[in-house]
Simulated assay, not measured.
Amino acid sequence: MELKYNPVKDCSHKILAISDTMDILNGKWKMSIVACLCYKPMRYSELLKEVNGISGKVLSRELKDLEINELIERIVLNTAPIAVEYRITEYGNSLKELTNTIADWGMSHRKRIISGMTKG
């Protein structure tokens, strides 16, 4: 049996996959949180400082969503006082290449727009 290329069906599958991805990583902050945690585990207060502009309430909600989707894990440290650290899961680490690609594109885009502004 020969497989036939069906561009409409292939496009539909990609659009569905992109939609699923965007549903999980929706919003302004989730990719930034994932990107931070891809490099090192962080405590709540560290994330609050690192993710510029996020409120505490929003950070808490985003961390819960990321944990539900198994992208990060919440670790209660055996310290006094008790501290909580967030870490990327092995599954969540599969997004590291995506965060790097998005960051690279964003830097190129910023350069392009800024250079366009100085030309005009």
Rank of each mutant, 00 (worst) to 15 (best):
M1Q: 11
E2R: 14
K4E: 14
P7I: 08
P7T: 10
V8W: 00
V8P: 00
D10Y: 03
C11H: 10
C11R: 14
S12V: 01
S12P: 03
S12F: 08
H13I: 05
H13R: 12
K14F: 12
K14D: 05
K14I: 05
I15Q: 08
L16V: 06
A17Q: 04
A17K: 13
I18R: 00
S19M: 08
S19T: 11
T21W: 09
M22Q: 13
M22P: 00
I24H: 02
L25F: 04
G27T: 00
K28C: 01
M31W: 09
S32W: 09
S32A: 12
I33S: 07
A35N: 09
L37R: 02
C38M: 08
P41I: 00
P41S: 11
R43E: 10
R43D: 05
R43K: 15
Y44E: 00
Y44D: 03
S45H: 02
E46F: 02
E46L: 06
L48T: 07
L48A: 04
K49F: 02
E50Y: 11
N52C: 08
G53T: 04
I54K: 08
S55C: 06
S55T: 12
G56Q: 11
K57S: 14
V58S: 08
L59S: 06
L59R: 12
S60C: 12
E62C: 07
K64N: 02
D65K: 11
L66T: 03
L66W: 05
I68F: 07
E70R: 12
L71F: 07
L71E: 03
I72K: 03
R74F: 06
R74L: 06
R74Q: 03
I75R: 09
V76F: 10
V76D: 04
V76S: 10
I82N: 05
A83Q: 12
V84Y: 05
Y86F: 14
Y86N: 08
R87A: 03
E90S: 14
Y91D: 08
G92R: 02
S94N: 14
L95T: 02
K96F: 12
E97M: 09
L98C: 07
T99Q: 06
T99Y: 04
N100S: 00
T101I: 02
T101M: 12
T101A: 11
T101G: 08
A103E: 15
D104F: 10
D104K: 09
D104S: 14
D104Y: 10
W105V: 13
W105Y: 15
W105G: 12
S108K: 14
H109P: 01
R110M: 15
R112A: 07
R112D: 07
I113K: 13
I114E: 14
S115Q: 10
S115K: 11
G116S: 09
M117D: 07
T118E: 11
K119E: 02
G120R: 15
